[in-house]
Amino acid sequence: MACCVDGLDDTNEGRKPVTTTSAEPTRRDFLYIATASVGAVGVAAALVPLIAAMNPDASTIAAGAPIEVDLGPIAEGQVIKVFWRGKPIFVSHRTKKEIEEARSVNLASLPDPQPDDKRVKEGKPQWQVLIGICTHLGCIPIAHSGQYNGYFCPCHGSVYDTSGRIRSGPAPTNLPLPPYEFVSDSKIRIG
């Protein structure tokens, strides 16, 4: 408080605007509420650009356009890793044995039950495309490893089978599938 002015502290009481007529308060209250509302709208509107600026920018979105992957060079039993939107995508050329293993599992025993044929494109069970990010906390699992010779996440020990389904460990769900389609028999477009 201002030290150089004596006796001010106890005089602020009653300094609020004094209501003089009975008709005035409603008009006054309406004005105050309207002003506060308009101010609140202004603050909210000012937040929009600040928040939007932290979303992916136009160049990032453009760079996230679909990519095409040539399946020709991928040998049977091989898993390759490509990047789409900064995420690793596993493209696996599964062997007959791997497909069989994936299809003979008792679905009821799975933490996240899902049949293998729902995880590949119809008529192309040998091609499996997965987002290679562990559903636990985002590490990248290692292919052809773990108890089911599927994927094993070294960070916290989640084990996935050859269909990318979670079998044991802390991960809650199966490895997700990216949107993709077959452009031809030997080419897919991811995204």
């Binding site: 605007p17 004005l31 309207a34 002003t35 202004g42």
Partner: peptide, 20 residues
Amino acid sequence: IFLLVFAGLLYFVKQKVWYD
């Protein structure tokens, strides 16, 4: 438009507050 409306409202609020 927003600034003019808000400034206008604030002007009337100011007039009311300072009236006494």
